[in-house]
Amino acid sequence: MNPGPHDVLSRILSACKAERAVTASFRLHAPWALHSAGTEGALIRMCTGTGYWICTDGGTPVEIGPRDIVMLPRGTPHTVASTRDPGDGVVPFADLLKAHMIGRHGDHPIELTYGADDTGSADAPPTQLFSLHLWMPALDVGAIPAELPPLIVLRSGELPLAHTLANTMELLVQDSLSQRPGWQLSAARMGDLLLVHILGEYLRTPAAARQGTPNVLDDPGIARAVAAMHEAPQQDWSIARLAAVAYLSRTVFAERFCALLGVPPMQYLSAFRMNLAAERLRQPRVRIAEVAEATGYASEKAFSRAFQRWIGVSPTQYQRDASTP
């Protein structure tokens, strides 16, 4: 088993699937500053008109231009603002959304105007901010690569793909605003494609150009082991077997894996299996015994115990909740 680098990337990113998505379009007139307390899942942003600044809590402000793609892989708390230093004039996103949201968060797209007394009578062109929030499976280990930074930016002026993704993002949000039948499924699936393209572009970038920590693709041995787990999660994997796939000793394999992915190999495998199980349980008429076998568990009982310990509810309850509109 020796998949090429592109196969490895495909297998790693195959776990990146959203349970559901919510879209938003914000027309923002300067001065404005909004703070997000964080989201469950991944958050993608793109703007047209005037650019803005984004700063993750405790991080350094980053200037974002029109059609740059911004992604927070784990929805890290952050501030977006019309200026680099908004001072004390930061408004919680939650307060703004509460005033404009209809029903449960995610039931409907959000569209609003904010700033300049909400009249739009400002001298500078507004910032049209498009947002896509993707709810990922219960735990992101095994679904979102663990070594990702809290903030990823793809510059439209530097990457042709970024400009294409920006157009796709704008069309996705604009189409969702009409709420035609099927819009929620369409938003989630198109969101999956955006997510995969953004993560793929980032992970393919050489470590020196990323100015960040190495990722799994920088180590061929660890990449082979991760691809093997994704390709055959039902196998009776052990540290020894995975180390053999990576052509490394068990000690070196375990150390490198943990350094690159942030968790031990068996914890990563367990998380991937649980996310795969959650995805399958969301499909209609699937049998729990089949899911147990596909994810490497010798019995339905053993799988059910592991699933409840990891996700917090039994497979039966999770399946029932997933089928409820």
Rank of each mutant, 00 (worst) to 15 (best):
D118K: 05
Q174K: 13
I144V: 15
D117V: 04
R67K: 03
V70W: 05
G75L: 09
T164H: 10
G89T: 08
P125I: 08
H78F: 05
V141A: 05
G75N: 12
D57T: 10
G191R: 09
K98S: 12
M169W: 07
H108N: 11
H108P: 08
L195Y: 15
L172R: 13
I110E: 12
T127H: 09
L165F: 06
A122S: 14
G182L: 01
S178N: 13
P61G: 11
M101Y: 00
I102P: 01
A116G: 00
L171F: 07
I110G: 08
G142I: 02
T119H: 05
A94C: 01
G103K: 05
E158G: 02
F130V: 00
D57W: 06
A81M: 02
V80Y: 00
G103V: 05
D140T: 10
G58Q: 10
A138K: 09
S186Y: 05
I69T: 07
V173K: 07
Y114D: 08
I198Y: 07
V90I: 15
D95Q: 10
Q174M: 12
P181M: 03
D117I: 01
R155T: 13
A138W: 11
M190W: 06
S82H: 09
P92N: 03
T164W: 08
D68Y: 10
P109W: 08
Q184K: 14
T119A: 01
A122M: 01
G120H: 06
P77Q: 00
P73E: 07
A94I: 04
V196Y: 07
Y114L: 03
L132W: 03
L195D: 10
D175G: 06
G120V: 04
L96P: 03
L129C: 03
L148I: 09
A146C: 11
E201H: 15
E201Q: 14
M169A: 15
T56S: 14
L194R: 06
L194T: 11
Q179C: 15
A146I: 04
H163K: 09
L96H: 02
A81G: 07
A99I: 02
H197D: 13
V153T: 13
K98T: 05
R74V: 07
D107Q: 14
V62N: 05
W183Y: 12
P181A: 13
D88M: 00
T60G: 04
S156N: 05
G75Q: 09
H105Q: 08
Q174D: 15
L151H: 07
V173Q: 05
T56V: 15
V80S: 03
V62C: 11
A99Y: 02
P109A: 04
L112N: 10
Q179E: 15
I144F: 06
N167C: 12
I144D: 01
A143Q: 07
R84C: 14
D95E: 14
I144M: 13
H163Y: 03
T56Q: 08
P77Y: 01
Q179F: 00
L148S: 11
L199E: 08
V141T: 13
A124I: 02
S82G: 14
G58C: 08
G65F: 06
V196H: 11
A146G: 15
Y202T: 11
A138M: 06
I110T: 13
P109T: 11
Q184S: 15
D95N: 09
V70I: 15
P73K: 02
W183A: 00
P149H: 08
S178L: 15
L97F: 10
S186V: 11
V62F: 06
I110Q: 14
V90P: 00
E147M: 12
T113E: 13
G106Y: 08
